[in-house]
Design a protein around this nucleic acid. Structure first.
Lengths: 341, 341
DNA sequence: CTGAAAGCGCTTACAG
DNA sequence: CTGAAAGCGCTTACAG
């Protein structure tokens, strides 16, 4: 099983008795090759077991057909779902994903450094789906000439595209749902303080609450992690007047909130406290939770992202200008069992 | 924001007033460059914002420092965990992962075809963590000269390495646990019939049961999916003598089994029926489930995989022979609340 | 439709 | 320690 040395284009040309150009054109869609020539090339190619070298092609065409995607916390099931859909959508267009998992514990500088590695692979585009990433990096990548889209996140950076759902409207919906359920002491569990998604959801929530003349009775920070959300729940419920309704910044944390409420604090959901989340991850639908939540349509977000990327790449190719896009996907309430009414 | 044309090595050489070789050596660890030369190169490089082109380097060195990883079903939380750990371990060694998500619904030929795309990117190694993949593909990739390791799976293919946990011992442990709990009618819910992992777990299970003089009272196939497991549970419980103990081929399905048992069938776990899974995914520890399970140490499996890959790549470099490895990671019981006793 | 030639951005013997 | 040159495997004007 000694690795045989790879068959190259010129090997094929030799065997087929044609020029390298002819072979190359045979594998370039739309190039002009006589049927007879193509036939001989193909025969030689299969005989030799020829596989074009995508790396060499990248060097000459300056197109790698690779998209860098950066994520951080895969425990939150929203991200695996996104990776799966994104990867499949990209594959359908002949692209592949170069994955980069940023470790949440590292400092910004380290992450940014390692991310620059990804740039060295000449990715044709970059999707940043990590909340913890500095905005500087997005700017840096864009400056390097690669289209970048922030996924499930926004930032007012010229040239950096964003795809997110309507977090503000979602926050409002959550508030309304809790109000209509008759909750009196409404609390909020935040994600990471400076995440745009977190900020928008909270803003919409507070705004709608305010319109009904109610204020958030308590607030804790769950940092987007399961453990953090458990702690936040304990903190909230140790107060004098425990909340009877909680909006949690995402489902992943909301599941932790429910676990803590029921198993640790002996409280019933929704009888003692209503819980509403955001994202609609697969587990939210599992009977053990039946979480009422605001749906974020991952498929729509992915489709929009791929479309955007493809357009941006095409524009780059023709050196056309391509305006910065900030795309917002609609959101809707999914009623299950964790909010009364 | 017009994409500036990238700075190349020769730009740096020009500005620094040295040869390309000098610049190249400055970025090649261990190459001999005079400190003064290096200094001038580095200065020119930062001034120009130079980033080495990993694609060009790959073409000359024949090492891409990319590892292809193939997965299929990311709903099963075991895989996101693996991807995260694998990606991070690889990054630590200067490698990156080219991800390929195979769609479970496609036919083998289609998948294999698309997988061959990944090969065109000259990956230095391949880890196949998809149950549904044909073994032919593993063989094909290996023949192309790339080290391949089957992850969480085994196959007796010369030259194809395997990393899996001790599924047979795990199956035995599950049987023993159910027997000791006093279960009388013990059932099994299988994954995908022809998956090696599925087969080994079941074999160990049946073997240990046999030693205690008991037989599997019922068996259903869950196909590794949540929905499949729900159906399997219904099928099992519609029989005359419903099982009082179930070993489920993995945790992802076991959670579905518990949901169906409790919410749909109104049965208590473990009072009415004991449930034991395999993998120890994060959700199994969540209070809503508290699933008793056989732990598969993902970190250990990943570490072993990376180690193996690195060794195989190094051997290839020196054109040394490298014996086929089949590595088995130990397994252990994690008692929580779904089995009595 | 076809081929010869240059070039993509690097690395690596080979001399010096 | 350093540089000139060849080469990695492809694509792409440019002639014909």
């Amino acid at each position: 099983m000694s690795p045989t040395k790879p068959v190259t284009l010129s090997d094929v040309a030799l065997l087929a008795g044609v020029s390298q150009s002819a072979v190359s054109r045979t594998y370039t869609p739309g190039a002009s090759v006589a049927p007879a020539t193509r036939e001989r090339v193909v025969q030689a190619a299969v005989q030799l077991g020829y596989r074009p070298n995508a790396i060499a092609r990248t060097l000459t065409t300056r197109r790698s057909r690779m998209i860098g995607v950066v994520v951080s916390y895969l425990q939150n099931q929203f991200y695996p779902v996104v990776i799966e859909k994104l990867s499949q959508a990209l594959q359908r267009h002949g692209y592949h994903v170069l994955l980069f998992v940023s470790d949440g514990h590292e400092t910004g500088a380290t992450v940014d450094d390692k991310l620059m590695d990804v740039m060295q692979y000449q990715v044709d585009g970059l999707v940043l789906a990590s909340v913890t990433l500095s905005s500087a990096i997005a700017q840096g990548c864009r400056a390097a000439g690669v289209p970048v889209v922030l996924f499930n996140r926004t930032a007012p950076i010229e040239g950096v595209h964003c795809v997110a759902s309507d977090n503000h409207a979602g926050g409002r919906l959550a508030a309304q749902t809790l109000i209509e359920a008759g909750c009196q002491r409404i609390a909020y569990i935040a994600g990471l303080e400076d995440a745009s998604t977190q900020i928008e959801r909270e803003r919409g929530f507070i705004e709608r609450l305010g319109q009904a003349g109610v204020e958030v009775s308590a607030r804790a920070v769950g940092r987007y992690s399961y453990e953090g959300a458990c702690e936040a729940t304990r903190a909230l419920c140790s107060k004098a007047a425990r909340p009877d309704g909680i909006f949690v910044a995402n489902d992943h944390m909301a599941l932790a909130v429910m676990d803590t409420l029921r198993s640790e604090l002996g409280l019933r959901v929704p009888q003692d406290v209503c819980v509403i989340g955001f994202d609609n991850v697969p587990q939210s639908a599992w009977p053990a939770y039946g979480l009422t939540t605001i749906t974020q349509d991952a498929q729509a977000m992915v489709d929009v992202t791929v479309d955007l990327l493809l357009q941006a790449i095409a524009s780059d190719l023709k050196s056309e200008a391509f305006a910065t896009r900030r795309l917002i996907t609609p959101v809707r309430l999914v009623r299950r069992t964790t909010v009364t009414g």
